[in-house]
Design a protein around this nucleic acid. Sequence first.
RNA 1: GGCCGAGUAGCUCAGUUGGUUAGAGCGGCGGAAUCAUAAUCCGUAGGUCGGCGGUUCAAGUCCGUCCUCGGCUACCA
Length: 518
Amino acid sequence: MTDRPSYYITTPIYYVNDVPHIGHAYTTLACDVLARFKRLDGFDVMFLTGTDEHGQKVEKSAEKAGVDPQAFCDRVSERFRDLAKAMNFSNDQFIRTTEDRHKKAVQHLWKELVAKGYIYEDKYAGWYSVRDEAFYGEAELIDGPDGAKVAPTGAPVEWVEEPSFFFKLSAFEDKLLELYDTQEDFVLPKSRLNEVRSFVKGGLEDLSISRTTFSWGVPVPDVPGHIMYVWIDALTNYLTAIGYPDTDSETYEKYWPANVHMVGKDILRFHAVYWPAFLMAADLPVPQRVFAHGWWTNEGQKISKSLGNVIDPFALIESHGLDPVRFFLLREVPFGNDGDFSERAFLIRCNADLSNNFGNLAQRSLSMIFKNCDGTVPTPGAFSDADKAILAAVEGLLPVVRGHMDRQAFNLALDAIWGVVGEANVYIANEAPWTLKKTDPERMGTVLYVTAECVRQLAILIQPFMPMAMEKMLDQMAVEGRGFDTLGEAGRLKPGAAIAQPQGVFPRFEVPAGEGAA
RNA sequence: GGCCGAGUAGCUCAGUUGGUUAGAGCGGCGGAAUCAUAAUCCGUAGGUCGGCGGUUCAAGUCCGUCCUCGGCUACCA
């Protein structure tokens, strides 16, 4: 075994009542890039994703589809595994809440909470709409035409009560506030932490965590008729995957607490309030960070099923290519903000950054080497100040990029890398090896060597974002070691090594005519 | 309604603790170069930094107020 530092990162588990869309792809992509980065940076990574398969909606959807719930879950869950393959995700596990290990884990956690006195039985009562299949808070109700209270949707509501177990969330108000104040960046972006804090400050009510009105869920231990409700089931997956309830297991000891729970902003509260409360109640450490990212709009329009403008990630990859899509999603928008996916912005961004700036840098330098240096890495002479400067710029990148990645600032990481890509283009333009070819072939070799070194190291750094494309590029240069430990002098290209006939890695896209066409 | 955040060049945005002529990328315009995926490099953009008022020797950067936009305000996940 190794003593490498560990890094545990999770996506939410995706609810199988819906098929994969761009939001799922986006969340997992962010985790994938982070996981790949950490692996290359020497960490022992556990990267988890999976599906959430219990609940009334699933039960009903299965019924409607005429299959039993498990078969229904099997089918939809498979789609999420298909997505992971299509997006080239490198998750170490794919967990499902219908697995036995998970049922055991949740039931154990439940018993722990009972033993510590944080679960009690009472009645769950509220305004229920049969039509909407949902409970509504008193404040949400509006006056109907005849003066009676109705749901915001206009549906009639009735007061119903059912027996339910409750979690004493109210007991954790102070502890949670202390967590937000003391644990640095527990929630990012910062603005989200403010929201969470003010939510908790507003007072916490106990949480209903069991149901008796349907049966598709994990049974409450020793209490027939009750199944666990929603979040206690779903959130616990993060523990299940690493061996809980065996807290002495190697995986648990190594990976808990998680470094990052990546979530969409819609489920932040559950991860930043309920989840740490559950863990505190069970005397378990809380995760280091919950990062809430934003949503995508489609050509400026809010995405919704009823508008019919849902972005299908499979179709997107098919039409645009995987790595450009991966790049665009993380480059275009500050992670944490909402972003707009527009065809035009995509094409312009990819052409400018991928084809023109980076792809062409690789192509022009490798091409010159291939044609003018017998297809082998040239032997460099002494480095000039300009050579040293550009190499220093490239080699100074890792700590900067690492800093951004540790805050999930993917766009800033890419921004920093592309800044140096630009410097490399300035370098080659200033040194003009095509002129040196006639005047000073030896110096030309040195310049091409330095340029190729830049490309090698940039490609290594970009691997987490675009693994396939960078593999292709590094293959062309016959680069062997590709971890971050090969950055700098440690992994210098070997003079005399044969390179392959260079091929463009990022073909340009055709941009339809119009204002601002590239 | 309450709380929080945002409003900076055509577009997308940076702008530390207030201090020389307010920056970048993309687009546009002019020039150079020709190794390369017609890619690259150099130069250029005169924007009342949402409005008004104030503090200060000095404000995009602090205070007040107004306008506009967005988020949160618990049990569908």
